[in-house]
Structure formats: C-alpha cells, structure tokens
C-alpha cells in the first residue's frame, strides 16, 4: 500500500505546527522519524494513521499493484501503549472481532510470535513494560497491516526488551509491513531503517 500526503498543514491556533507539501510511505519502507520535542511527530503519525484530521490537505491510501485490497490497515502504536481491560488473548483478538473474523490459529500464532503464549489469560494490566509493547505488536500483527507507525516504542525499556522488539519489527518488516518509527535517539531499532525523516521548524526533510 502507498500512503500519500498532499499539501498537509497542521495549525495550532494561529501558528503552523508543520507544513508538508508531499510525502509518501510504502509498505516496503522502514523509516526513522526524528526531531525535537513538540515539533508534531505524534500528530503527524496520527494524521497518517487517520486518527486525526489535518487542518488542511489530504491523506490517500492507494493499493500497490498485485496487493490484497483488504490489506489497508495502518496501525498507530502509542508511546505508552493502551491495553484494553481484558486478558492478553482478548486484546490480540480485538481487531479480528471488529472485522467479525474468528481465527484462533492466527491469534495463537501472534501470541507465540510475541512470546506471550504462556500469559494468554493474564489480565493485560499486569504485564511488564516490555510485555506490553510485545502485546501491542501482536495485536497489530494479527491484522496483517500494510503500515505500522510506532511512537517511541522503546522508551523506558531495558536493553533485553529493546532487542526483542527489534527482532519482532525486523520480522514484521520481512513480512511486508512498512514501518515508521519515531525515536529521539539512535538505537538498534533505528538501524533497521532505510530512510530518515527529520521534522524540525515546521518542515519535514527526507535524509539519506
């Protein structure tokens, strides 16, 4: 899938937060989005995921040649991921339930992929920080998303958890999911990325 942004302007009050003439993200990309605090990285990602409307401009989702038309999901993962007040398994099943799709095997595979199979009936609120991030990724994986947009996914995680998330993202990318990663610091995750976008002073610059 190709996600296109055309003439996007986001304003807060009288000031432009950012203006982006043209931008595109495709499901083979792995992009590191960086920039100072408060420049609008999260807002941009929410606009791309369709969770927020820009002040002006348009966001278009276009299928690539030969791609499954149903594969249109663009999933945004919050910096502090929100888990529903149910058990781990129900959280993974959530997106499928919304599609009225029952696929136990898919859920089992996603749980195993995230290393959460033994915790499937544990209440999601009892998970550790690393487990929460893995659950958020498993919840995305079952939907076979075209793009996953991650907002500071490794903040407050230990080295071991970061390495685990890195492996999962690598695997997700290999499966054909595009990744946009907002991260302040360079780390193992940002090394996965083949593009770097800098959002600063209201402009987005694509870096080599």
């Amino acid at each position: 899938m190709r996600l296109e942004l055309n003439n996007i302007c986001q304003r807060y009050g009288e000031e432009d937060l950012f203006v982006i003439d043209q931008l595109q993200l495709i499901s083979t990309d792995a992009v590191h989005l960086h920039g100072p605090n408060g420049v609008g990285k999260s807002t941009l990602m929410k606009i791309m995921a369709g969770l927020q409307k820009p002040t002006s401009g348009e966001v278009r989702r276009m299928p690539m040649a030969g791609e499954n038309m149903r594969r249109q999901a663009v999933i945004y993962l919050h910096q502090n991921t929100y888990l529903f007040d149910t058990d781990v398994r129900s959280n993974v099943e959530y997106g499928l339930r919304m599609r009225r799709e029952k696929n136990t095997k898919k859920v089992d595979k996603a749980l195993a992929w995230a290393g959460l199979g033994h915790l499937e009936y544990r209440q999601a609120h009892l998970l550790s920080g690393g487990e929460r991030q893995r659950l958020a990724l498993a919840r995305a994986l079952v939907l076979d998303p075209a793009l996953v947009l991650l907002d500071e996914p490794t903040s407050n995680l230990d080295i071991g958890s970061v390495a685990r998330i890195e492996e999962m993202l690598q695997d997700l990318h290999r499966r054909g999911t595009g990744i946009l990663l907002a991260c302040h610091q360079d780390n193992a995750l940002t090394k996965l990325c083949n593009q770097h976008w800098l959002l600063a002073a209201g402009k987005l610059t694509v870096q080599a």
């Binding site: 995921a49 919050h78 929100y82 529903f84 959530y94 919304m98």
Partner: peptide, 17 residues
C-alpha cells in the same frame, strides 16, 4: 483514557464499535 478511542479506531473499530 483518551487513548481508548484511538486504539480502538486504529485496530479497525467503526465509530459505533
């Protein structure tokens, strides 16, 4: 939590869901 609706929507929920 304001993230409830965003999380639901990003995982494919309709406004009613």
């Amino acid at each position: 939590d304001h993230r409830v609706l965003e999380t639901a929507k990003t995982l494919g929920a309709s406004p009613l869901q």
